[in-house]
Design a protein around this nucleic acid. Structure first.
Length: 498
RNA sequence: GCCGCGUUCGUCUAGGGGUCCAGGACGCCGCCCUUUCACGGCGGUAGCACGGGUUCGAAUCCCGUACGCGGUACCA
């Protein structure tokens, strides 16, 4: 298994890259890197109707963001290209024709209506979705039922047609899945899968088999939603005379509400569904990757935080679980906090600057921003929280928390705060340090013989507008004497007129 | 309906016949730290779906049931 491991991530550009897709990509990537193999990106754009022009760029951007670098792909090239299926269409029709020639596939001329009619005719409570299969194909319009010369005539006249796989009537198809072990299907339960569509393009089933073989893919690692069609793929490998790659079907990522994680059942829970939403939400890629890695996989020891290298070193498919994993946003947030706090302050400050400037807080020094980061980091989940939760460090509060005022602002509070203000006004800007300001406040408190909080809380309210937050004295020192005094004056006015 | 795959704390999981009256992490709860909040530290809550086997012994093996999920397209 250590020989020439080649895996692929093969998304179809029908929409933005899904978080579940990123997890599939991650597992492929980790497996490839663990075995010193290749990670291939292949774009499965065989569905003209659902094609989304921006999707491929989104996939590429998302993988880069996550740090999953591809060894071969549309942008990167490689000796197995092209890596877009739309650029390989002749290949598929060639193999489809060969399959027909060998008697393992056949031409079908049925219109959509005719297939519909068949389904309606055969539909019953016992069989709600009749298939085009080994029993019904003999009553349809195809090269198995039509005389050879008529088939030829139809083909030559350019009549729209498709190619279907001729699934054997009664056979057990089994394969060994690396995650699930021995899996078997009865061929009678399979339909005669369409291989080549009437637009001349292949379906996923044909295309993935042809490409995986031609690209020398050693392991197919994909979501469990593909397990049911795996036997058809096994059949195709056999009929084409190829050795199938090793299969591994990953457990699905589920919504806390049940079912596959999808836009509908995730976004209302605050779970971003597309990778681009994580990027926009400023999640830490390392956190998302660490979180995703543990969704269906574990190291077997007690580690929770892993660097990419550690993941690569430890990863193995036999430690992937079989059952679906529910997406836990709280755990992702825990990971995100962890990685956020592990980041060097100057680096974080640089990123905070971008957010701050976008909101109009310009002209701030690096030193200022770095202090903001130190003050806010312990109470932020994502980077932009530093600005959102710490807005009072950028701007005077527009409002003062009503509830906190009710609790902390008593009869004589105004006078106390006024006295504190007058005292700090006597400090020079240079003297206006956290320690000094704290000493001033302590002095007032002691002189009045009251509790520390009786004055500290009102001052906090007056300066930040909130009843809680980072250390008040460091906050005031950062803001500076004049700003603090200005805010206190405005708050005093505001609270006096109530 | 049929086919397939699953089922250990609320969640992610460890566990691959005795060392498990089941371990870790997130969450939740409590205490400590702090004359704010948060961080941090400490502690706690909580689980082998059910029923039959096999075995001296089962969370671990087998069968069945229930439940969940996936598939059942000229979509991937």
């Amino acid at each position: 298994m250590t020989n020439h491991v080649r895996v692929r991530f093969a998304p179809s550009p029908t929409g933005m890259l899904h978080i579940g897709g990123l997890r599939t990509a991650l597992f492929n990537y980790l497996f490839a890197k663990h075995h010193k193999g290749s990670f291939v990106l292949r774009i499965e754009d065989t569905d003209q109707a659902r094609y989304v022009p921006d999707a491929e760029a989104d996939i590429t951007t998302s993988l880069k963001w996550a740090g999953l670098h591809v060894d071969e792909g549309p942008d990167k090239g490689g000796k197995f290209g092209p890596y877009r299926q739309s650029e390989r269409s002749e290949l598929y029709s060639k193999y489809a024709a060969k399959l027909v020639e060998d008697g393992h596939a056949y031409y079908a001329f049925d219109t959509a209506e005719e297939i519909d009619n068949m389904r309606q005719r055969l539909q019953s409570p016992d069989n709600p979705t009749p298939k085009y299969d080994s029993v019904t194909r003999m009553e349809m319009k195809n090269s198995l039922t039509l005389p050879a010369d008529e088939v030829k005539k139809r083909l030559e006249s350019g009549e729209p047609h498709i190619i279907r796989l001729k699934v054997p009537e009664n056979e057990t198809i089994r394969f060994d899945d690396l995650i699930r072990g021995d899996v078997s299907f009865e061929s009678r339960g399979l339909d005669d899968q369409v291989l080549l569509k009437s637009d001349g393009l292949p379906t996923y089933h044909l295309a993935n088999v042809v490409d995986d073989h031609l690209m020398e893919i050693s392991h197919v690692i994909r979501g469990e939603e593909w397990l049911s069609s795996a036997p058809k793929h096994i059949l195709l490998y056999r009929y084409l005379g190829w050795k199938p790659p090793v299969m591994a079907h990953l457990p699905l990522i589920m919504s806390p509400k049940g079912g596959k994680l999808s836009k509908r059942n995730a976004e209302e829970l605050g779970i971003p569904i597309n990778v681009r939403d994580y990027i926009a939400g400023a999640y830490e890629p390392a956190a998302v990757i660490n979180f995703l890695a543990y969704l269906g996989w574990s190291t077997g020891d007690d580690r929770e935080i892993l660097t990419p290298d550690e993941m690569i070193a430890t990863f193995s498919l036999d430690r992937v679980s079989k059952s679906g994993a529910i997406f836990d946003l709280k755990k992702l947030e825990w990971y995100n906090e962890h990685y956020l706090r592990a980041m060097p302050v100057p680096q974080l400050a640089g990123r905070v600057r971008e957010v701050a400037e976008r909101e109009g807080y310009t002209g701030l020094t690096d030193a200022y921003l770095e202090t903001v980061v130190r003050l806010m980091i312990e109470r932020s989940v994502r980077m932009p929280d530093i600005v959102e939760q710490g807005r009072f460090l950028f701007d005077a509060p527009k409002t003062i928390d009503e509830g906190a005022v009710k609790k902390a602002w008593k009869e004589n509070t105004g006078e106390l705060v006024t006295e504190f203000r007058d005292k700090i006004a006597g400090l020079s800007e240079a003297e206006f340090t956290a320690a000094q300001v704290k000493a001033v406040l302590s002095g007032v408190v002691e002189a009045k013989g009251i509790g520390f909080g009786k004055l500290m809380l009102p001052v906090r309210l007056a300066v930040t507008g909130a009843g809680s937050g980072p250390d008040l004295f460091q906050t005031m020192a950062l803001l500076g004497r004049d700003e603090v005094i200005g805010r206190i004056n405005r708050s005093l006015d505001q609270l006096a007129t109530k």
